[in-house]
């Protein structure tokens, strides 16, 4: 196991009726933020749960901060892992103050001052029950809890979903601050690809339980493009270089993985830079051509 990796999954597999996470191999180097993207049901939450030991994989192994997650030593390693799910799992009657009292006795390196300062920063009342909190406030509370015990690895499952842009931006700022320390790492599953474009160093894309790619984000966005052309131009192209080709009445569009190369070969083509959302959508069409609507 390479200790410079915050996360290392080898051959992780898990089968449910109608869904299989297949032989997932994923590596998150220390000091990086990885965005885990995929459609609903692609296996993002299953992957995170299998990594954290919430579910039992059928095969494969996961190392978090160098500890195999089924080994007895993993309990100790969890001291340095902060987890935020898409909700807060404390009793609604608990107040942030009580949650702090509980966590202070669970984490050896719990910092009450950090927790309190985060509560103040997020304008969270210490003595009000969680049941009175909005979703945004609950998520901020979860972040405050995850960031107050000297975590080196944050695992976030749809933690920014359902938040307004201002709150999401606050949380992204927090993550940027977190990775200022060079051994701090974040794995963030999200549907909100624009957030990942802002902060992620790497993108891992899951589709139907399979890892399509795990790549450096800047390289990915540099290399991918969205081709838009007429039918005549399309006839001249090598279709094996097009992903998720969608043909409309007047125009066709597809994702290309070598934007610069294709542009050199066909100088007249319009190939726009692709966003993460485009990449997800075209990969979806590639695998589910029946779901394409006539467009363009």
């Amino acid at each position: 196991m390479d200790t410079a990796n915050a996360i290392e999954c080898r051959g992780l597999s898990k089968s449910y009726t109608g869904f299989t996470l297949k032989d997932l191999c994923l590596t998150l180097p220390e000091g990086s933020i990885m965005g885990l993207i995929g459609e609903n049901g692609a296996g993002k939450t299953t992957t995170l749960k299998a990594m954290l030991g919430l579910i039992h994989p059928d095969a494969g192994e996961t190392f978090l901060l160098g500890q195999e997650t089924r080994s007895p030593g993993f309990t100790q390693a969890k001291e340095e892992i902060g987890v935020v799910f898409d909700d807060v799992f404390f009793y609604p009657a608990y107040t942030p103050q009580r949650i702090g009292s509980i966590l202070r006795r669970l984490y050896r390196r719990w910092e009450p001052e950090v927790y309190e300062s985060l509560l103040r920063r997020f304008s969270l009342p210490e003595r009000k029950p969680v049941s009175t909190f909005s979703r945004g406030m609950k998520m901020k509370l979860a972040f405050a809890a995850a960031l107050s015990h000297h975590a080196r690895l944050l695992i976030l499952d749809e933690a920014t979903s359902g938040l307004d842009p201002v709150m999401r931006d606050e949380i992204l700022d927090l993550l940027r601050e977190f990775v200022q320390e060079e051994d701090h790492s974040v794995l963030l599953s999200s549907h909100i690809t624009s957030d990942l474009e802002k902060i992620a160093d790497r993108i891992a894309y899951l589709q139907n339980g399979e890892l399509v790619f795990s790549r450096n984000k800047d390289e990915l966005l540099e290399e991918c493009g969205v081709l838009r052309c007429g039918h005549e131009e399309l006839q001249r192209l090598d279709r094996s270089r097009l992903i998720g080709l969608r043909e409309g009445r007047f125009e066709a569009e597809a994702l290309v993985l070598d934007r610069a190369g294709l542009q050199r070969q066909y100088p007249g083509l319009t190939i726009d830079p692709a966003k993460l959302e485009d990449i997800m959508v075209f990969y979806h069409w590639e695998h589910h051509p029946e779901s394409q609507k006539e467009g363009c």
Partner: peptide, 12 residues
């Protein structure tokens, strides 16, 4: 409250 899902991520 799905507490156990969270509890399993704690150092216990």
């Amino acid at each position: 409250s799905k507490w156990n899902s969270y509890a399993v991520t704690l150092p216990v």
